[in-house]
Design a protein around this nucleic acid. Structure first.
Lengths: 116, 116, 116, 116
DNA sequence: GTGGTCTAGACCACA
DNA sequence: GTGGTCTAGACCACA
């Protein structure tokens, strides 16, 4: 189950999206498995159904889940593609992180020391 | 001079803060040098003086500049300390980036390939 | 046999209606032939009987099938008429498609290139 | 100004999206021009600001407009790309229309007579 | 004033 | 029961 952090600057619906993306890509949730219903998840997270709905809509737009009307939401099958996208995003963030480092004339070795 | 990007998702005041941080830490602006006045910078960036004021307040809070009432804003002297902070922040971001990579079972070599 | 696509955005009952319309108009099902019972089709498609019933009601409303109480549903005789309706519908869609094309100042030749 | 049609099966927010897409791609609205504010458009269409917000979010996701926080929404510059997308969508619809026609053994000439 | 998020609650189509 | 849309109204960050 995902955890909301009200101290987090990100809006609630984004935290839900990010949480489920990780659960799906890490394999914790299997393809075809049913997502909790909008109302149930809203109850569990003690938030509003509209907020969960917004998160689910975004997850569907990004192909992490798909909706069957009147039935519910299900995990998509084609994870491999999504993992590629995710890798691309991470590489983009690493790239800009390195750019900033260079711009400040900080040695990259200092940046990565003990981490990599 | 810094450049605003209206397509950028970050609010304008944050772009101003980030831009000046880089200018200061990279040495493009020297310690003791005077910042442009709030009104002038607002004119140059064609943005709202409130926005520039907000950016200056944030830069002062983070000790990048200091204010002399009635005279203006000046670049702080103690850059070395700030650079340490900046390094710490960059390392924090790298850390969480690597955490996410691991969580998705992505090989770190794949992440850094061609970048590092 | 028709095939449901749960990734399809259309509701299931509409997919059933569209599927049988095609089967009937293309001649794959002959006039007078009996339709599968509501329960059987629901089982085969592993969907809800209510959904199949809704589809059959719609097919009957459009005169593709007719119901004999206590016996079942049968393909209608007067296909020629239905085919005319279908043609009219297709022409309507083509019309609005061309209208949109014109409105966007897109050349019709570009639209149909390689298709027609 | 766009026109809402309450008989239309499409939800209100989709009608707003479709309406502005046409206005933008047809050149009726110029690049860089400011969109009406969320609240103003909601008043004019006598609908709820949330509904307009939803439409604007979708238009931004599709790059038709971009948002500057605290300022408003503006028409994007790169229309040419969007027009290509739109053409692709229209061609897709024409393709499936022709497929249906063939499947019903209807002569394509009958379909296009007097239209093309 | 501008957009963005969220809640509470209603209503609808669909299965 | 399931998702989807919409309203009314509030609160916040930002310019």
């Amino acid at each position: 189950m995902i955890q909301l952090d009200y101290q987090d600057r990100r809006p609630i619906y984004e935290q839900i999206v990010a949480g489920y993306k990780t659960l799906i890509l890490s394999g914790a949730l299997e393809a075809g498995e049913q997502m909790p219903s909008v109302r149930n998840l809203a109850m569990e997270l003690s938030t509003n159904p509209n907020t969960v709905q917004k998160a689910y809509t975004e997850l569907e737009r990004q192909k992490y889940i798909y909706t069957v009307k009147g039935r519910g939401n299900y995990i998509s099958e084609d994870n491999s593609l999504l993992k590629g996208e995710q890798l691309k995003e991470l590489r983009g963030r690493l790239k800009s992180l390195l750019d900033e480092t260079d711009e400040l004339h900080i040695d990259r070795a200092e940046l990565t020391k003990g981490l990599l």
